[in-house]
Write a protein that binds this DNA or RNA. Structure first.
Lengths: 125, 125
DNA sequence: ACTGCTTATAACCTCCTGGTTCTATAACCA
DNA sequence: TGGTTATAGAACCAGGAGGTTATAAGCAGT
């Protein structure tokens, strides 16, 4: 599980233009000019975004004469999703442990209360 | 669903130091010095990372005398996970549509073959 | 061979990021 | 009051990100 792939993937996802490009590509392959069309931005800017997505492995390119059609790649998205899911699970588990701890503390409180009723000086002896 | 929150969240997740901090915090609250300890990095650097995490809403801070304990916040992580999940679903759906399209094309191929058998010049009528 | 379309590259700018060191603030401790 | 601990802030630096324009390169059609 390469941290560099995670770095690149999350960094790629951090830009709204790139997320929009990915969303567009989820609907099927597209060429650079097709991808650039909805944006108020020059074509080289889109090419740069595509290079970022490509470096992260999120997008791969084919060849069709002059065109370089882009398509989505699943792997880095899977890895990023897996990281978030693992994280969520680990966190949930920690909360369970915390809940258990709190239950335990409550139990101790109760026994303390018991003890105080019989031994009012609060010693634990 | 603010794109700015997504920007900040994914950007925050794009750094391995910050992901490690989050992982540490999934195990419970921690102070800045506790968080800084495992890293070969100055304390102000960690404070900067914490500020990034805070700006993204991933972390909130309390107060305990001189200490400013950090704890995880669920919301931005939920939003990021949701974005990825929605994306995955949309993508899967598109693939279904693509499968349907391919089936349709195969069907057309078959009818073409039928036609060729009766009309060898290939005209479509 | 010329023209047009599609894409990438180069050079440049500005702003942000991630790190540093040094210093200030604030709370506790004696 | 003075010292220590915990954290934040300021000033600085190098490098990268995201944009621009102008240009080059590859391929297609006539």
């Amino acid at each position: 599980m390469g941290t560099e792939l995670l770095d690149a993937t999350f960094a790629a996802l951090a830009d709204p233009t790139r997320r929009a490009i990915l969303a567009r590509l989820a609907g099927g392959e597209a060429t650079v000019t097709e991808l650039a069309e909805p944006f108020a931005m020059s074509q080289p800017a889109i090419s740069k975004h595509l290079k970022v997505l490509e470096r992260a492995g999120l997008v791969s390119r084919g060849r069709d004469a002059q065109r370089r059609p882009c398509r989505l790649e699943a792997r880095p998205l899977r890895e990023a999703t897996a990281w978030l899911a693992d994280f969520r699970d680990y966190w949930a588990e920690s909360y369970q442990r915390l809940d258990a701890l709190l239950d335990e503390l409550k139990a101790v409180d109760r026994t303390d209360a018991e003890r105080r009723r019989t031994r009012p000086d609060g010693t634990r002896g």
